[in-house]
């Protein structure tokens, strides 16, 4: 076994013995020294997940979150040195983590927070000027076939749980009061958009979220609007335009 393999092997395995071949100048047991590395690997990865998932952590408490995130980190360490992208897959892990089974909304909440990370770091894009949108209306017949390029930071999430209300409650002064008022039977959909240098999170109708999702995957405007459940189309388009979320519209 190579030195590196032996050293790496035990870092993510709490029960594995300390690798052979280590020494200390004073002859002390190197286990304690090796534990510094072992600890730092897991703690630093858990810290990264905690920074990306503050509401998930608040919901379950720090101790539970760190234990759950530690499990994830040992099973699924990052594949890239770019830690901003560490945590894709965490929500799926949460969904299958038995001790969290009593909180059925938790995985979607983690998913929502992950989308916020993606939106935060996504590419920048200029919005399509409203005058150009207006100009496109001149050719009314072409409108159903337009394909919309949405801002690279835009994300939508449809959940069977009130994830937007849960998330928003944790941003409010009176989190306990806001949490007590949530209807846990309600399905909710979230829209995440860049707002200046911040990411704004809005609750939208499930039909509007489905419409935006279809636009994002490349469906033409007419088909996307028609396939979604009933929703307020003018208000939804207004929302997208107002947040600079439409970068381009082209006939295909």
């Amino acid at each position: 076994m190579s030195t590196e393999l032996a050293f790496a092997h035990a870092l993510l395995r709490p029960d594995a013995p300390c690798p052979a071949g280590l020494r200390a100048w004073n002859g002390s047991d190197p286990v304690k020294r090796y534990a510094v590395y072992r600890n730092n690997v897991v703690v630093s990865l858990v810290d990264a997940l905690a920074d990306s998932h503050p509401v998930t952590q608040a919901l379950v408490g720090e101790a539970f979150f760190r234990a759950m995130a530690g499990e994830f980190a040992r099973r699924s360490p990052p594949r890239s040195p770019v830690l901003a992208w560490y945590g894709e897959g965490f929500a799926d892990f949460v969904a299958d983590f038995p001790p969290a089974a009593g909180l059925p909304y938790l995985a979607d909440l983690a998913r929502l927070e992950w989308l916020r990370v993606e939106a935060w770091h996504a590419a920048d894009a200029d919005p399509l000027p409203l005058a150009e949108v207006a100009a496109l209306l001149a050719d009314e017949a072409a409108l159903p076939n337009l394909r919309v390029t949405l801002h690279p930071a835009l994300r939508v999430l449809r959940s069977a749980h009130p994830v937007v209300s849960l998330w928003a409650a944790h941003q409010s002064e009176d989190a306990a009061g806001a949490l007590g008022a949530i209807d846990f039977a309600a399905a909710e959909a979230a829209l995440l958009v860049r707002d200046g240098l911040d990411v704004a999170l809005l609750r939208v109708e499930p039909g509007a979220a489905a419409f935006i999702y279809r636009l994002q995957r490349g469906d033409a405007l007419g088909a996307a609007a028609q396939a979604a459940a009933p929703f307020d189309l003018p208000a939804t388009l207004g929302l997208l335009l107002r947040h600079g979320a439409i970068a381009a519209m082209r006939t295909s």
Partner: peptide, 16 residues
């Protein structure tokens, strides 16, 4: 990790 219970703001929610 496998025997812990969530103890955060979730305790303030009424879960169906």
């Amino acid at each position: 990790a496998w025997s812990m219970v969530p103890k955060g703001t979730c305790e303030k929610t009424a879960s169906p």
